[in-house]
């Protein structure tokens, strides 16, 4: 796979296939953690890290262990356990060797196991690989990194929107989550404008 194609995959997964705003993965942290800019950054950094790591681990497990033994149907079960174990391991390693990073990401890590964006990316890259044999390990990792960055972009943008919302006079029934969802809808509208941009850029 050429560099141009990899750049295309990377940009597409940030803009046109944005995990939160176009594919609806990881809506819970998107709504829960996007109130403040620093927590939004911490959460998305942790998600990006785990996404890439989980893809790096589950891809070989699926391709070299599950497929040759015809255990494809165990995919869901194996992946969720691998991700849960991985998150625990990352937590332990960070606590022992990188305390500053642990203090920054630590509280978000347990929440990531149940974040569907992580399980989603590990399965989606395998689906893409099944359709197009050229979509191999490197392309999967690039896609996972792009999806993580796309998550970060959406979270940070939306944290800004929500800070503005704080000072607005909102009708009583719309206060809280409803107005947040309506503003998310407008942010998603702007991401619709990106459709087709990546193909045009790389032509």
């Amino acid at each position: 796979m050429s560099i141009t194609q990899l750049v295309g995959i990377f940009l597409a997964s940030i803009l046109t296939e944005n995990y939160i705003l176009c594919k609806f993965f990881g809506i819970c942290p998107f709504l829960g953690v996007s109130k403040k800019l620093d927590t939004a950054l911490g959460m998305s950094a942790a998600v990006t890290f785990v996404m890439v790591l989980a893809t790096a681990v589950t891809w070989p497990i699926y391709t070299y262990i599950l497929v040759p033994n015809e255990f494809e149907y165990l995919q869901t079960l194996v992946f969720i356990l691998v991700i849960a174990g991985l998150v625990q391991l990352v937590e332990i390693v960070l606590r022992k060797y990188m305390p500053p990073l642990y203090n920054a990401l630590g509280i978000y890590l347990p929440l990531i196991t149940t974040n569907c964006a992580v399980l989603g990316i590990t399965m989606l890259v395998l689906d893409k690989g099944a359709e197009d044999p050229a979509f191999g390990y490197v392309a999967s990792l690039v896609n996972a990194l792009g999806a993580g960055i796309g998550f970060l972009v959406a979270m940070v943008m939306f944290a800004g929107v929500r800070e503005r919302l704080e000072s607005c006079d909102i009708p009583k029934s719309l206060r809280g989550l409803p107005i947040t969802l309506v503003s998310a809808s407008l942010v998603a509208c702007s991401f619709l404008g990106f459709s087709g941009i990546v193909d045009k850029l790389l032509q």
């Binding site: 705003l21 176009c22 594919k23 609806f24 009583k172 029934s173 719309l174 206060r175 809280g176 989550l177 409803p178 107005i179 947040t180 969802l181 309506v182 998310a184 809808s185 407008l186 998603a188 509208c189 991401f191 619709l192």
Partner: peptide, 25 residues
């Protein structure tokens, strides 16, 4: 068309929750 695109999903969900809030208020 916008209602079956992603923004429509957020919008309809937000409106339904606002109605549920109103009924529970």
């Amino acid at each position: 068309l916008i209602f079956i695109l992603p923004p429509g999903g957020f919008f309809v969900f937000g409106m339904l929750m606002a109605i549920a809030n109103k009924l529970n208020s």
